[in-house]
Design a protein around this nucleic acid. Structure first.
Length: 267
DNA sequence: GCCGAATGCCCAA
DNA sequence: TGGGCCTTCGGCG
């Protein structure tokens, strides 16, 4: 399931399969029929990830915008491709490869204005080298909202999801309900740079790995985390507490991550 | 075989 | 703040 690293990995994997080629676009499931027809037979000119959004540009006007949501996924294979399995919203076919977009939350064609509007509401992306880190850090430090909420707010900082949020705060020794205003410049800078490191590693490994001594399993990496949905803190061995922040499950070690004295809004 | 949960986000009230 | 949407998978019977 996708956080920002999944989308950037998909962009990297799919570029050599699709960019610079004529793409047949179809909607096996049928729910993207009109959009598919408008893109079918055109040349894909670029694939770019912004936070959790993936944008495919096509010659002429129009971009394909995909957001996977909670359960969506990409399946890419070399030709010859198998018949679509399950609910394939869109299938992109080049002379050599096939990319299926399965169960996305969003799959739509945007005109240039729509694309600009989308990009305008996505905050600095920790996986993009051109990201304005100062803007993200300033917004966090200026807000009295719980940092556990701010890290999930894609207009503040883009790419982080529920697992990375939990793990970043544990690694930094910061309680999720600490207000942004309570954090030091050094703490916020550390959160940004650790996010960059962890998500970049996630792109490389194709999995969320937030423990330090990660070793590959057989072939593919498996997800490896410290406290997300874990019983005990690997640092102090105490029980991990489950919290609900913004309607989502979050986790914290309340020994290693001191709860702020004044209670913060976490709803 | 059914039910619930899941790494996301939008909208209405 | 709660419900809706998208799909798959594991646990339970």
């Amino acid at each position: 399931m996708p956080e920002g690293h999944t989308i950037h990995r998909a962009a990297r994997d799919q570029r050599p399969m699709l960019v610079g080629r004529t793409i047949a676009v179809a909607s096996p499931q049928g729910r993207f029929a009109a959009g598919a027809a408008s893109l079918d037979g055109r040349v894909c000119t670029a694939i770019e990830a912004y936070g959790k959004h993936l944008l495919y540009d096509f010659e002429g006007e129009g971009s394909l915008h995909v957001h996977l949501g909670l359960f969506g996924s990409f399946r890419s294979t070399a030709q010859p491709a198998p018949a679509p399995r399950g609910a394939v919203r869109a299938r992109l076919t080049s002379s050599t490869h096939v990319v299926d977009i399965v169960g996305p939350n969003r799959c739509e064609v945007l005109d240039p204005a729509g694309k600009a509007a989308l990009l305008a509401r996505i905050g600095p992306d920790v996986l993009r080298p051109d990201a304005d880190r100062t803007r993200a850090m300033d917004r966090i430090r200026a807000s009295r909202t719980a940092v556990g909420l701010l890290l999930m707010d894609q207009s503040v900082i883009a790419g982080i999801g529920n697992i990375y949020r939990t793990e970043l705060l544990w690694r930094a020794g910061i309680h999720p309900s600490s207000p942004g205003t309570r954090l030091s410049p050094a703490q916020v800078e550390h959160l940004w740079s650790d996010a960059c490191d962890l998500l970049a590693r996630g792109v490389e490994l194709g999995a969320i790995v937030t423990i330090d001594d990660a070793t590959p399993g057989e072939g593919r990496y498996r997800e490896r985390v410290n406290i997300f949905d874990q019983p005990a803190c690997p640092r102090c061995t105490r029980r991990i507490r489950m919290l609900v922040i913004g309607g989502r499950k979050a986790y914290a070690c309340e020994t290693c991550q001191k709860r702020p004295r004044r209670v913060t809004r976490t709803a």
